[in-house]
């Protein structure tokens, strides 16, 4: 659950635009990379994986209001480029249900997309290190590490949301610039908030990371036992 459930109009405009720009560039790159694949066969697969992610995202695990993403499962089965496209589709659809703001779809795609892409490459790495008989462990560990990294991106986004970029640039240019009392107080409060957030996130999400890791590992182990051809798609 490392994506942003932040409402519209709360994050600064520059950050929202940066998220959309980043997503647009990455999507263009992914579409370019998958052009060589037989897309007529792959598009229905994107549909089924995206739908599965939506179904899982709509099943909150009580009492934590946590839900699994299965983004790493998407990465392992679809490959990084198709998984990124699939995640954009998922974010767009769930935003229409009011599950996170529509303006933060760009940032959400970057955060969850990074999970899928990292998960795919980490899975390949662990599979080489641990051998072919450990797809469950490889995917599970890959999922946990990917979630930790994507949560770090989320924390960075939240931190950036509090920091006025002009202030940062000015401070870098003139380290001893005098700040107003209000700015100082605000920065101290924001610093505290981010610290509180990181501590809260670590405490609450650690459970979620483990849970998603276990579920990812078991799902991939099950799928590889019955349909091994679905694991490790064409590298895109």
């Amino acid at each position: 659950m490392s994506h942003l459930h932040i409402p519209d109009g709360v994050l600064p405009g520059w950050l929202v635009l940066a998220g959309w720009l980043c997503t647009a560039v990455l999507l263009a790159f992914c579409i370019y990379r998958v052009k060589r694949l037989e897309l007529t066969r792959k598009i229905p697969l994107i549909g089924i994986i995206s739908a599965l992610m939506i179904v899982c995202m709509t099943l909150p695990i009580i009492p934590f209001a946590y839900h699994v993403n299965l983004s790493v499962v998407a990465g392992i089965i679809l490959g990084p480029a198709l998984a990124f496209i699939s995640i954009f589709i998922v974010d767009l659809i769930i935003a229409m249900f009011g599950h996170g703001g529509i303006t933060v779809v760009g940032l959400n795609t970057v955060v969850i997309g990074s999970e899928a892409v990292l998960g795919y490459y980490l899975f390949l790495m662990f599979k080489i290190l641990m051998g072919n008989y450990s797809v469950g462990w490889s995917s599970g560990i890959a999922a946990v590490i990917s979630l930790i990294l994507s949560t770090s991106i989320l924390v960075l986004v939240l931190y950036a949301a509090h920091v006025n970029p002009d202030l940062v640039i000015d401070t870098e240019k003139e380290p001893h610039i005098e700040s107003t009392t209000h700015e100082t107080e605000s920065n101290v409060k924001n610093g505290l908030s981010i610290n509180v957030f990181v501590k809260t996130a670590l405490a609450l999400l650690a459970f979620g990371w483990m849970l998603e890791g276990v579920i990812t590992g078991l799902v991939i182990k099950y799928v590889s036992g019955i349909r091994p051809d679905l694991i490790e798609p064409d590298t895109t």
Binding site: L27, I31, V34, G47, I48, A51, L52, I85, L92
Partner: peptide, 16 residues
């Protein structure tokens, strides 16, 4: 690809 993906996701959603 995204437009078609949206259609097929929607279709698959109810099956799933």
């Amino acid at each position: 690809i995204i437009h078609d993906g949206l259609y097929l996701t929607y279709r698959s959603l109810f099956v799933l």
